Simulated scan of single mutants.
Amino acid sequence: MKYYCILCLLLVASCTTPKEDTWQTLDFGAFQLKAPPDWKIMEFEGVDSYGGGLTNNVDSLTFDYGEYDVDFETGANRRVAEDTVNGVPATIMIPVGDTPGIVSMHLRPRHDKNQFTIWGHHVQQQELILKIYKTIVFKHSDTTVNPPLTADRFIISTYITGKTLFQMNCAGCHAPLKELTGPPLATVFKSRDQQWVCQFLRNRNSILKDSLQVAYEKEYQVQCTRFPDLSCAEIRRIMDYAH
């Protein structure tokens, strides 16, 4: 009898959850996403960026699309997954335990100087929210590259924002936009892709010196410190911040 009741509850839940092929498209101008029919757009003004959100009166999501990263309790333990959402590298974070908490996603769309963060506080429908995140598309998104997000992709990690990583590892020699001991990082990153920067900082012996690297070393008379303990995802967050 006990298992029969559980089965009935699961059947009821599956019937009341809209199938994804019935989801609506919500257009926010800069991007679109899909959500069940009971979700609606929330409009409000951002301080120095484009902000807004959506809600179904159970959970609410807020987004920020602008120059600066959104900081969520730097250093707090969370379950973190590095993902690709319609061709764009993304960092997705969920609470460590089963208690409702912040479910957030940060990414930087291709061909774009702005950063995008979307999040919900005290999320009750975590699986649904993650499915909504995976539908987000920007102008240059590649919808053919959107792998499934599975539970084993998440690891418990101390998340550190790009700004804090920059201050901890780079600020002694670099600023984002002006010269210090080394060149402005935003200028360097315009000439380098993420894969090259990751190899350069983590395992420099794996790449050959080119004319630009030789010119920087000659001009500034210094070689960049190696950071083998930084992950490529953390380096990407530093690049996003410096841009």
Rank of each mutant, 00 (worst) to 15 (best):
T158H: 14
L180P: 08
I160E: 10
G120A: 05
P109Q: 07
R108M: 12
V123D: 06
Q115K: 13
M168W: 13
D193G: 05
H106G: 11
C170P: 00
D112R: 15
Q124A: 13
G182N: 03
C170R: 03
N114M: 13
R110T: 15
A151Q: 13
R153Y: 05
G182E: 02
N169C: 04
P109G: 12
H174G: 02
G120I: 03
P148H: 07
S191Y: 03
I118W: 02
Q124L: 13
D142Q: 07
H122L: 12
G172M: 01
D112W: 14
V145H: 01
D152A: 11
P184Q: 06
E179V: 12
I160D: 12
H122K: 15
A186G: 05
Q125Y: 07
T135P: 00
E127A: 12
F189P: 00
F166I: 05
P100E: 09
L177P: 08
F138D: 10
I118M: 08
C173P: 09
Q125G: 06
W196N: 00
Y133W: 05
I132Q: 04
T164A: 11
T135F: 08
H174C: 01
D112G: 15
T99Y: 13
F154K: 08
D142T: 02
G172Y: 01
W196V: 05
T187L: 10
I136Q: 03
N146L: 08
V123M: 01
F138G: 08
I155W: 05
F166G: 09
K190M: 04
K131G: 05
H122F: 13
V123W: 03
K163Y: 10
Y133Q: 07
G101Q: 12
A186F: 03
S141L: 05
L107M: 14
P109S: 14
